[in-house]
Design a protein around this nucleic acid. Sequence first.
DNA 1: CTGAAAGCGCTTACAG
DNA 2: CTGAAAGCGCTTACAG
Lengths: 330, 330
Amino acid sequence: MVDVALRAGVSTATVSRALRGVEGVSDETRSRILALAEDLDYVVSPEASGLSGRATGRVAVVVHDLAAWYCSSVVVGLENELRAAGLELVVRCVDDPADRVEFFGTLPLRRKADALVVVAIPMSPEEQERLAGAGVTVVAAGTHDQHFPSVAIDDVNAAQQAVNHLLRLGHRRIALLNTVAADDRAWQAQMDREEGFRRAMRSAGVPVDETLVVSWSGGARGGAEGMDRLLSGERLPTAVFAFSDEVALGAIRSMRRSGFSVPQQISVVSIDDHPLAELTDLTTVRQDPLGLGRAAGRTVLAALRGEELPDVGAFPTRLVIRGTTAPPAD
Amino acid sequence: MVDVALRAGVSTATVSRALRGVEGVSDETRSRILALAEDLDYVVSPEASGLSGRATGRVAVVVHDLAAWYCSSVVVGLENELRAAGLELVVRCVDDPADRVEFFGTLPLRRKADALVVVAIPMSPEEQERLAGAGVTVVAAGTHDQHFPSVAIDDVNAAQQAVNHLLRLGHRRIALLNTVAADDRAWQAQMDREEGFRRAMRSAGVPVDETLVVSWSGGARGGAEGMDRLLSGERLPTAVFAFSDEVALGAIRSMRRSGFSVPQQISVVSIDDHPLAELTDLTTVRQDPLGLGRAAGRTVLAALRGEELPDVGAFPTRLVIRGTTAPPAD
DNA sequence: CTGAAAGCGCTTACAG
DNA sequence: CTGAAAGCGCTTACAG
């Protein structure tokens, strides 16, 4: 920077102001400095800038499973929005419970980032408290949060959209193929989606057959295994509401293997609209993790600017009817 | 840090040395300082540290499509390895060609990171040159590179593994369902996999029917469309080698829709072993992007330590035979 | 509109 | 093994 200042014949203070677009520099001087900086291929040192100023120009994101479609899409949305604002994204994966304890225990983010975005990790009260004392702006993405601004879908409502679709088709023996969090701590989405399932059934006056409510591990494999359990039960469902598209895909695989046709004998609906849902002709409730990540990014920017955060409400979801649902055979 | 030094009754220089595990501090002093720092919940400011020392403690990763399984897996592997070494990962997505030009044109990474990992983006000579002059350690992951250390699979060989499997089963009319890069610049993997395809055919003395060589856009949709083209040709293939699992899945969908059974009428093999490959019983050549990311991370660490980089050779791939391949019907 | 000077919180030769 | 001091490259009141 001294170099630029010397050549421009001004002080480093002026260069600093010109480069940051701050007021108090004449247009003539500013453009001269900008041109010079460009010429010299000069970039400000974020270290020095962060040390003297207050902000680091970085926002951290903690994410549960970056390799999963949902999480990586949220992160891409975040990155796009933050990059446009000149901020960098530091990614921290939290793979297992031990790692999670480690992260929330040490919170290695003080002075390392201006804000933290927690993606798809419902926080315990203790974790929230730790974070609140960490001195950074916190935004939750993919989960609802009491203490911090959050952007997420309404899982109860999304589940109702799915189950109502089955009910409208005439189904009554509807199974819930839920998942359990690997973490064993209550996972918000699972509870909310079950609540939505029950609420839809209740509204329609249809009793829930508890033998048709199964919670199994997640992913396609979990869905396949959970479905095997349902198929080995006494009375079969005519329709299944699965926690996610991946679970649904696994379930469908199990059904076909066992000789059941979808949707002729059993209908399937889930939540996500994963890229493969269209390919597999899966009826699902679409959510938009990329857009959600962008919204979370905008929330971070607003919070950093100290703006009043407008309550964005729940992020929208929408039923997409494809080929895995049909009226019951009987 | 002054706070810790004051309470420990030593200078900040000693605290700094103790905290970094550098030599030149008595064990007694060191442990006292460490305990104190722990007590006070003290963490060094990376800004200040970076400003006085040389390194930033950060490595940047540029990635083409973070939402894709392959790329996000590589990034997770990288993150795991780098985090274990106390380094942070800054993620930069490069979505479209314009964005790519912008990135390589401005290279906003000088002083912002100690190293740069380029994931799945084959670089042009000009881009390589720009990077070489940027003053950061560069590692390529997922592509081979002349100028920088790189860790990648041998695409030619992987393709041969796939096609040789088909040849061994007795297939001769084998189609290549390749993809074209959205970027329109030559994409290494596509060329190498085509080369592997041709080499395997040549070795087996089987002529390539050029009407069975199709390059279409990527993803499941691209695979479906490309397959439709193949199916509308004069002579049908008895087997298809697809660029990736997603392309293969799309292709299979097209075949089933057109009334062809897999593998009875047409066999399908591809490259990846995507999580859904097992679910869909797809025969494929497995690659391990998570492990590849880890290896890239280790390469970065070694380079940062100034170590001689051992030539790791190609990252291994392995044929996984499942249910989409069988001997030809005739 | 512009500059001189202090200070951000560390690390690193240089002494001892 | 330990400390005093300079310096890393910026930003920010404070003057002018």
